[in-house]
Design a binder for these strands. Structure first.
Lengths: 229, 229
DNA sequence: ATGTGTGAAGTGCTTCACAGCG
DNA sequence: CGCTGTGAAGCACTTCACACAT
């Protein structure tokens, strides 16, 4: 099966290559997608599904589904497909979604507040415990969904007492690197950055970026291409 | 230079392969990053920069920078590097950011409202002209930043009269596909989707997804890996 | 001397195609 | 027979390394 071979040089770019085995970030992301698809199927009452049917339904590639899954074990039944409930359980296991994760959001502006109350967040394995800001006028208020805004100075203490493992950075670009350093200093090792800057973190920190401006520019680029042909 | 060779099969997945020439989506995204870096450098007063210096400063790869740029022309000066202002202009040109793009947001919930007022959006080539919702209680209100919320029924008319070219989908997962269809029907050909579902659009539509839940799950996955070793 | 532009090599991801199991 | 699991092939993206321009 040859799995431990890869990764000569650590490739410090992007979300660090998955530790200990050569699972690429792309694969991990697809596993999340599969999990969501299975949720849909289960709600629709299906008990088993073949890789082909799954691919057709959700615009995926059946060979890739099989390969991604086979990497972690033999979950399928030949001649039948995959048992939806079983595979779901397996994916939850593989993705490490069995335990609940505590999340903080730094930056209580429009975006931070919206994220705090965003449905997909405060459910299914993730709890947002607090927002942080350095603006005294914001400290003390509570988001519509009930998440309290605290002074950024309290981050280290709260991170520790609440066992926070993920931070979301939603501050202006100019403050983002400093905030990231604070967050890492507080012992948090996974960060989702919404600020439109390229941040740097030391090895061992998982850093993902959601850069809305770059996404928009990319759409503009595709439009320009489409128009000029 | 061999550029028109690639792409046997169209690869219907993701944001469709850049039309007319083989520019990958990844390259286009990096061009946006370079542009932002150049902005920084220009503010810092630098007039020229080598690919190596650019790479060092922003954690990029110098060979890749050169390759990405060389694809569109010879913008560098051998022995010197790139003239910041010139390269910036070139990138703006290549990325199609010369003309202003009109954007609408469908879904006036927390997220939609926050996006409407989000700094990086209403500047530098993009204007958010309206929010749309089907909830009569929301229709008629105006976001903090002054973007009006309109009934979804008015989308086709507004899209046409305001020459909207980009739509942002910020509705719940269950409504997203229907909204996407409406948006495409209204003649909009580039869409940024925030709903946690895999959407399908016909060829010719550029569809990008920002899936917060999958990003969070991915962080959890990396944490689980790091802990279990 | 310096740093671009670029073939060629290297690496990793995706897809094919089929042996083999149920 | 149908569908998984998987070597092998194919393709795409990245990095190397150097000829060549200034």
């Amino acid at each position: 099966m040859k799995r431990g071979t890869g990764g000569r040089r650590p490739k410090r770019d992007g979300a660090a290559r998955a530790r200990s085995a050569g699972i690429s970030d792309l694969t991990a992301q697809r596993l999340s997608i599969y999990l969501r698809c299975l949720d849909d199927l289960q709600k629709a009452g299906l008990e088993t599904i073949s890789s082909q049917a799954l691919a057709d339904r959700f615009h995926l590639n059946s060979a890739q589904i099989r390969k991604d899954l086979a990497y972690f074990g033999e979950f399928g039944v030949r001649g039948v497909g995959y048992v939806v409930a079983d595979l779901k359980r397996q994916l939850v296991q593989i993705l490490g979604l069995t335990r609940n994760r505590r999340v903080v959001i730094v930056g209580a502006g429009n975006l931070g507040m919206a994220l705090a109350d965003y449905g997909g967040f405060n459910r299914e394995g993730f709890s947002i415990v607090a927002l942080f800001d350095n603006d005294p006028r914001k400290v003390g208020v509570v988001s519509r969904g009930g998440v309290p805004v605290m002074d950024i100075g309290r981050l280290p203490a709260v991170a520790k007492s609440e066992k926070v493992s993920i931070a979301v950075v939603a501050v202006p670009a100019g403050a983002a690197q400093k905030v990231l350093d604070l967050v890492v200093e507080a012992g948090i090792r996974a960060v989702l950055n919404f600020a439109p800057v390229r941040l740097a973190a030391r090895a061992g920190i998982t850093l993902k970026a959601v850069d809305l401006k770059i996404q928009l520019e990319n759409l503009a680029f595709h439009l320009a291409r489409a128009e000029g042909s």
